[in-house]
């Protein structure tokens, strides 16, 4: 087990290295730069600024300088928000994204599995049909459609929620982005749970449990659900990482100062260090969550062994 953990962490390094390299050269090969403003600044000033940020050096030197700094955990200064380092920007934006993302994850896991179990228990009844329809809708509707619709219905018409801004994470401001982020995941979780639960309820061990006179609750929760949770566990890892990516659109629409917004702003302003920082951050999250979900898989399913 320990060897497996070690090996997984070791293979993560080349992946991360590749991501950094591709993004770095992609950005620096592209025409234009962070200080090519429309209001031209005098060339000598521009040269000075570029010297400060080492932008006058050849690209490969900048690359190794960046890698060197990164090895010390230094993500560099932001090129556009002059007085901030990228790390400081993340210190502000990451908690916001994590807060929205984790609530969305919790919501989709709890409500999604509950709906899936309910649909499986009432297989082919009205409620099953209803939940399947809802889940199909949820996974088909893209976020940039559901988000403005939620704003329109609950914000502009009913005045229950803020339609933009973070307002220090007040519930009425956070609920819109959380629900929007959760909806597609919730739909997928419900579908997966329904499928695996129907299969589990037909298993021999469930028949045995029922024959032994266990209560319905015990049969469903203790015996059927444990096996049925497996697909959810393997889905949850990539999904959790996807929440951070999905937050680009949600954070843009709801004007939430999170990592997704930071990335878009950074890309539009060619804030090289900010963009690099975000890509690295997302890559780490993706690798980490996939790893965690594999580990969790082994905990839920004793048949899975890593060695």
């Amino acid at each position: 087990m320990l060897r497996y953990v070690f090996r997984r962490l070791l293979t993560a390094i080349p992946t991360l290295f590749l991501i950094i390299t591709i993004s770095f050269f992609l950005m620096h090969i592209a025409p234009g730069g962070p200080f090519n403003m429309e209001r031209g600044i005098p060339p000598e000033i521009k040269a000075n600024i570029e010297r400060v940020f080492h932008l006058d050096e050849p690209v490969w030197m900048q690359y190794f300088r960046y890698l060197g700094n990164l090895a010390h955990g230094d993500l560099g200064p932001s090129y556009i928000l002059i007085n901030f380092s990228v790390a400081e920007l993340f210190a502000q934006s990451l908690p916001v994204s994590i807060r929205i993302g984790s609530w969305a994850m919790l919501l989709s896991l709890v409500v999604g599995s509950a709906m899936g179990v309910l649909a499986a228990l009432r297989h082919n009844k009205f409620i099953d049909f209803f939940i399947v329809t809802l889940a199909t809708g949820g996974s088909t509707l893209p976020t940039f459609v559901t988000a403005p619709l939620i704003q329109l219905i609950f914000g502009l018409t009913l005045h229950w929620i803020w339609i933009g801004g973070w307002h220090d994470g007040e519930l009425s401001a956070a609920i819109g982005p959380i629900v929007t982020l959760a909806l597609p995941q919730l739909a997928t979780v419900a579908r997966l749970m329904r499928g695996s639960m129907i299969e589990a309820l037909n298993g021999h061990h469930i028949r045995t449990a029922r024959a032994m006179g266990l209560s319905d609750f015990s049969v469903v929760v203790k015996h059927a659900m444990r096996g049925a949770l497996l697909p959810i566990v393997s889905y949850a890892g990539p999904a959790a990482a996807g929440l951070v990516t999905g937050s680009i659109i949600v954070e843009t629409i709801f004007q939430i100062p999170g990592v997704g917004r930071a990335f878009i702003d950074g890309a539009l302003n060619r804030d090289y260090t900010l963009v690099m920082g975000t890509v690295i951050l997302i890559a780490i999250f993706t690798i980490l969550f996939n790893f965690l979900s594999d580990l969790l898989y082994a905990l839920v399913d004793p048949r899975v062994r890593y060695d």
């Binding site: 992946t15 591709i22 992609l26 990516t245 975000t278 890509v279």
Partner: peptide
């Protein structure tokens, strides 16, 4: 496998913005 690990939404945005 390696390409799978890349954050593609980000790459597409970077491609489109920078080029």
């Amino acid at each position: 496998d390696i390409l799978y690990a890349l954050p593609f939404t980000f790459f597409v945005i970077m491609l489109v913005v920078f080029f």
